[in-house]
Amino acid sequence: MDKLNEGIKYMQEQEYEKAAKLFNDSIEENPNDPLGYINFGNLLLHINELEKAERFFLKAIELDDQAGTAFYGLGNVYFEKSLFEKAQEQFQKAIQLGLEEADVFLMVGLSLQNLDHQKLALPYFQRATELNPEDEVALFQYGLSLAETNQIDLAQQTFFQVLKINPKHSDAHYNLGVSYLYKEDVNLAMDHFNKALDIQPEHMLAQHAKAKIEEINQHSNGE
């Protein structure tokens, strides 16, 4: 096993110091190979050393401006710094360079969502779910994006898909509740708010929604 692969293995096992030594050795032995810098950048990103990670990804790009994974890593650095516009640019560049993975499409969608561009985010979340249909994070975000753009039926189908993967996803239940309120089906809405609260009793939004419905019911019953 070469040093980079061994370092990745240690990183997955959370043996960060051993991984760092192997990545460093690899860079010293192959200073013009961008992969060493990308892997070290990923490690630094993982332990939240954002400034150092940025330098390693920029060095990788300097060595190979076609390295999609370096742009993806740099995008993650900017995303963690809440620089969503810069993050989006890097993720888009990674896609243009042929990085066709669910995560990069998810991250473009999340960047656009944070910039309040729901309609623009939607196709990226959709593509992420096509590439990885079992990714509950991408599915949930896709559902939110559909709901935000008033595609309520599709949003509901997507939240139900999330619950198939993770039956204890309280936010999926909460958003199903909201979608049923939108359709004026108060009983089904209440059912999902209760399920959200069964899973997560301190779910503030579900608590608030349930209290509102109970308050309206009391008024309509003349209490």
Rank of each mutant, 00 (worst) to 15 (best):
A206G: 09
N48L: 10
M1D: 14
N150P: 03
M107G: 01
P123W: 08
P133S: 09
I165D: 04
N39E: 11
T149I: 00
F23H: 02
I165F: 09
K210H: 07
L58D: 09
E148R: 14
K86D: 11
S170V: 01
G109M: 11
L83G: 00
A196D: 01
S220E: 13
V137H: 04
A121K: 06
G177L: 11
N48R: 13
L115T: 01
S82N: 11
F71H: 12
K3H: 03
E62K: 12
L115R: 05
L99T: 04
A94M: 09
N175C: 12
T129F: 10
A102V: 07
K52V: 03
Q118W: 05
L106T: 04
E51D: 07
L163E: 07
L45D: 02
L99A: 06
V186W: 09
F71Q: 02
Q207C: 03
L22Y: 03
E130M: 11
L58I: 07
Y37Q: 07
K119G: 11
L99V: 08
F193S: 12
M204A: 13
I95N: 07
N42C: 12
D171T: 02
F40A: 07
E54A: 11
D171C: 08
E223S: 04
N24R: 10
A172G: 06
S170W: 00
E54P: 08
F71P: 02
A147Q: 15
D185G: 10
D64N: 14
D2S: 14
L43P: 06
K164W: 05
K59D: 09
N30P: 04
N114F: 06
L35K: 14
Y182G: 08
A206F: 05
Q218C: 06
N150F: 15
D191V: 14
E15Y: 08
D171W: 03
A147R: 13
Y142E: 03
N114W: 08
T158L: 14
N114V: 06
Q156L: 15
D25F: 01
L58M: 14
L197N: 01
A87M: 03
F140W: 00
Y142T: 00
T129K: 06
